[in-house]
Design a protein around this nucleic acid. Structure first.
Lengths: 157, 157
DNA sequence: CACATTGTTCAGTATAAATTGAACACTATG
DNA sequence: CATAGTGTTCAATTTATACTGAACAATGTG
């Protein structure tokens, strides 16, 4: 059903998905669309990859959520067809917004909470050390905030 | 056993561990060491975090493997003591070398295999499209290779 | 409106990963 | 050499996550 070439490309994207903490099926679907010369519909993917309808539907949804694929309209066909987005820039910023940003925001809130707790702390012996460590956390956060947009810029087309 | 402040800091690192696809216990141990004013031994960690000896041992090993913690020698004590490394630079490059590099290398090998398969392909209608897609892959790879060292440099203390 | 087509949802199940804890190895010390 | 202290390993178990597939919209079509 799948050629050796297709299998190899899909495998590559399965590995990538793993690195990005995305489900295997998401990597499979993207890989298939990436190497496919023409748009595919849900059922094409399902049959070629031999995965369930549910997985295919969810996988396509995730890929759309950060712009890794887009829908193409095919006249006279009720089905949705999909093609892989191949501009790294688009995908990276979509991924950053959808999957990374929430973590960053969460970290920011936690750090605020940590500083509040630090202030409630009675000023005993160990306090300066704690203060220093939490200062370190703030520095990390600041640097991360500077870096993310820079990285996105570097990826830029 | 753990103060509110300790719990909050540990929780922060548990989240980070999750993002980096590291076991929860690794985040817990690093968080504890990060916020601890003095070095801790395996049993200190185990008891404070209420996790098993096995997890603690493995977690400490992983953290050492990319230089997130270091061992300190305490005279007259057979136990190993650990402190958190707080220089982001050291940890990031350690992490890149241990956890990222293998994936990058693997991807490189796969791409070579893919190009080999492409050449075996009979030169039929769809071949130019395939060639173009695989060219895209190569570009991505090139850009990733350029970016990684640059990011490490940006993190640099 | 009845029926077919397409895609989504979600409870149940399967799979993968982390954790446990007991057995083991190693070393120091009396 | 026997014993206690420390850390590692790994098979069994638990836990988290992804996947399945059947039921369910939603929409088009005769």
């Amino acid at each position: 059903m799948l050629s050796a070439l297709e299998r190899e490309v899909i495998e590559l994207f399965v590995r990538m998905a793993d690195v990005l903490s995305l489900p295997r099926s998401v990597g499979e679907i993207y890989g298939l669309l990436f190497i496919s010369p023409e748009p595919l519909c849900l059922d094409d993917c399902r049959l070629k990859l031999n995965i369930s309808k549910g997985s295919t539907s969810q996988g396509l949804r995730i890929l759309r959520s950060f712009g890794a694929i887009r829908t193409v309209y095919i006249p006279g066909d009720r089905k949705d067809y999909f093609v892989a987005e191949t501009q790294l820039r688009k995908m990276a910023s979509g991924f950053a917004n959808e999957q990374i940003q929430p973590h960053v925001r969460n970290g920011k809130e936690r750090l605020i909470q940590i500083k509040k707790l630090l202030n409630e702390q009675s000023p005993d012996e160990g306090r300066e050390i704690l203060q220093e460590r939490i200062q370190t956390l703030e520095n990390w956060q600041k640097r991360t905030n500077q870096m993310l947009p820079l990285v996105l810029k570097l990826i830029q087309n």
